[in-house]
C-alpha cells in the first residue's frame, strides 16, 4: 500500500488514520456496486415506460423511442448498459463470496478488475454493434 506515514521524531510507523486511506480496486468495486444499483433502480422507470408505451399506442411508443434515440438518450442507455453489466459481474463475485470462494487478496483484486473492465468491454461491443444497426 505504501501509505503508512512515519513519525518524524521516532521514524516509526504511525497508526492508520480513519480518514486517510488510498483507493484500492476492491473498495472501488464495492461502492460502484451500490452506485450502479441505485442508478439501475432509477433506470427501471425507463424500462417500465418503454414496455407501457409498447402496450399503449404508436404515439406513446414513438415518444419513448424518440427519447431513447436522441443523443442524451443514447448516452443514458450506454450508461445503463455499463451499470447493468458491472452490477451483474460484480453480483456474481458477491455470490462466490457467499459460497466462501474468491476471498484471497489476489483473486479479489483480479475479479474486481474483471468487473470494471469486462463491463466496459461488453458495453463497447454491444454499442458498437448497436450504433451500426441504428445509425449514429
Amino acid at each position: 500500500m505504501g501509505m503508512t506515514e512515519k513519525s518524524p521524531i521516532s521514524g516509526r510507523p504511525l497508526s492508520p488514520h480513519l480518514q486517510i486511506w488510498g483507493w484500492t480496486v476492491t473498495m472501488a468495486a464495492s461502492i460502484a456496486h451500490r452506485i450502479t444499483g441505485i442508478a439501475l433502480y432509477g433506470g427501471s422507470i425507463l424500462l417500465a415506460a418503454w414496455l407501457a408505451a409498447a402496450a399503449y399506442s404508436e404515439e406513446a411508443y414513438g415518444m419513448v423511442a424518440g427519447v431513447m434515440h436522441s443523443l442524451p438518450g443514447r448516452v443514458i442507455l450506454i450508461g445503463f448498459t455499463y451499470a447493468l453489466l458491472f452490477h451483474l459481474i460484480n453480483g456474481i463475485r458477491h455470490l462466490f463470496w457467499d459460497a466462501g470462494q474468491g476471498f484471497a487478496l489476489k483473486t479479489a483484486r483480479a475479479s474486481a478488475w474483471l468487473a470494471f473492465l469486462g463491463a466496459a468491454l461488453l458495453t463497447a461491443l454491444i454499442w458498437t454493434y448497436g450504433l451500426t444497426q441504428t445509425g449514429v
Binding site: A54, E58, Y61, G62, A65, T81, L84, L85, L88, G91, I92, H94, L95, D98, I126, Y129, G130, Q133, T134
Partner: peptide, 29 residues
C-alpha cells in the same frame, strides 16, 4: 440471493434480446 440467481440468466437473456432488437420498430417489438 434468490432474486440475484434468477436475474443472472434472465438479464443475460434480456440483454441479448435487446441487442437483437437494435433498430426495431414498434411492430417488431
Amino acid at each position: 440471493r434468490i432474486t440475484a440467481l434468477l436475474l443472472i440468466p434472465t438479464i443475460i437473456w434480456f440483454l441479448i434480446s435487446m441487442v437483437g432488437h437494435f433498430g426495431s420498430d414498434r411492430a417488431e417489438i
